[in-house]
Design a binder for these strands. Sequence first.
DNA 1: ATGCTGTTGATATTAGCTATCAGTGAGGGT
DNA 2: ACCCTCACTGATAGCTAATATCAACAGCAT
Lengths: 153, 153
Amino acid sequence: MIQQLNKGDNQVKKIYELLKENDFKITPQRKVILNLFFDRIGEHLSAEEVYNILQENHPEIGLATVYRTLDLFAELDVLQKMSFDDGKNRYELNNNEIHHHHHLICVDCGKVTEFSDDLLEALEEQITRKTKFKINDHKVKFYGICKDCQETR
Amino acid sequence: MIQQLNKGDNQVKKIYELLKENDFKITPQRKVILNLFFDRIGEHLSAEEVYNILQENHPEIGLATVYRTLDLFAELDVLQKMSFDDGKNRYELNNNEIHHHHHLICVDCGKVTEFSDDLLEALEEQITRKTKFKINDHKVKFYGICKDCQETR
DNA sequence: ATGCTGTTGATATTAGCTATCAGTGAGGGT
DNA sequence: ACCCTCACTGATAGCTAATATCAACAGCAT
């Protein structure tokens, strides 16, 4: 059987190296959780959702480990931590190729879609110039009515 | 003693009317909490902080009422609900004159400053055009190092 | 003034998350 | 290949922000 190497594998290897560089161990639990996110690009998973998904094939992984692992990956900028105001943190792969994407939250159905953009960099420059606040990152959420909800109304 | 009418009073009256229009009662608790926010413009208060401030002059107001009142005012767009990732919701007066102001969060000292701006409207138009997502509002958080923390380093 | 009904305060409960701790295993040294 | 060490894990207790419950209360329309 030929070992296929797809796009994700390279990224995964880089993340393994990142763990090593920072003296973290590459444990099976971390591998599994990382793979889960590569299998579900575009989703915004909460810790409990991750835990529930794992129940099927990896019921041995505890909830505390899920929380710890998500935090660790967020700290390493592998995952991006976010919240859509439902009282729980959510995570998604921090895809470097889509550096800045914003979230469009439908206040009607709750669906979250994404929008890629780098327009905010102009605004960041303006802010830094005026306030001397050195900006590293931003989080933008837009609230409104999604296309589907506009139609079924 | 002459009854002075300051800027806040007019706004307060409008909010009383807003409550009436929506069949909510104008209770002493709501008056007190609303006044508290007019006395502390620029601060981002959590429910517990509001409760603690009230302990001095209004210890009879319960914590549950504080939570309910903040939620109500947020629902009516009198207060803006926000979170700076410290696990608790925060509120500030939704001043119509400063329609859009963004928050600059210092990842070093945690201080939150504000920045007024309307540049995002261009971006909103672009998004609506491309995605048919009808945007009503946005929340923007910038993360970085504030001026003070850059100097003391 | 009266009565309806939304509101309140006290408190129990929930939910998301973190701390604790004994047992385990990744991975470097030999 | 075998230790050895210490980071890591799973189970669970604990914590904290927020919500639900409910009897008593009080705006405000009449």
